[in-house]
Design a protein around this nucleic acid. Structure first.
Lengths: 118, 118
DNA sequence: CCGTATCCAGAATGATACTG
DNA sequence: CAGTATCATTCTGGATACGG
């Protein structure tokens, strides 16, 4: 494995998957389809503008689907596509790493900052 | 699984691991320790400033180690720490996803853009 | 060789207000 | 409800030049 090296196209996609909100939104959608406002609430502090942007990009990449339900008032459901679901496992791997190793990272940071102060 | 939701600290770490260059650099270091200029060459177009920034941050997070060899001229070797190596598998999972699914993503993009044009 | 310093353009993001 | 529009600000990263 690893005879690769990322080219520009691949780095672009990487950037889009790992921008400020994409992973957070994807993580939410892993639990099932959600409506715009539900995602916004779950994500914490994201503004509607940023959320729209994030969802559009994920939709464009074929990872998220957008379904309009013509009720009144209107409802829009976002969910993972089949392509999006293939991303679920590797993504959870990364998120799990964060959960598991953040404490150790915090320790390392303190050590680094102490050394830097001297 | 997945009773979590990322808090601010966790999102911060996520942002640092997935900034423009971190994954590229980590990917290079997976193959073994490398010197500053070797990383720069392998990464493609990164400027020394950005590379320094990326390496410092990874070092601060305890993921990358920096070792100065007092030859003349000076040499500096960067490598993964033991903590960094635990990140290798999940990271390769993501990179592999990119390699594997980029073609499909490209197709999806074209479809999306076509639909948008109308 | 391994960086740091400075400057700067453009992208990303937040705040806020408004619409179908 | 599900966004869009606009403005202000911050943040990122490239270009370039220089220093230990």
């Amino acid at each position: 494995m690893a005879d690769h090296r990322l080219d520009d196209k691949q780095r672009e996609l990487l950037d889009q998957l790992f921008d400020k909100w994409s992973l957070v939104v994807l993580d939410i959608l892993c639990d099932g389809p959600r409506r715009f406002s539900a995602i916004q609430r779950a994500a914490g502090t994201i503004t509607p503008k940023s959320l729209t942007q994030t969802l559009r990009r994920l939709e464009r990449n074929g990872i998220v689907s957008r379904h309009v339900v013509a009720t009144s008032p209107i409802a829009v459901e976002y969910g993972l596509t089949s392509l999006g679901r293939t991303l679920e496992k590797p993504m959870q791997g990364m998120l799990y790493w964060i959960l598991r190793h953040l404490p150790e990272v915090s320790v390392q940071r303190c050590g680094f900052d102490d050394r830097a102060r001297r």
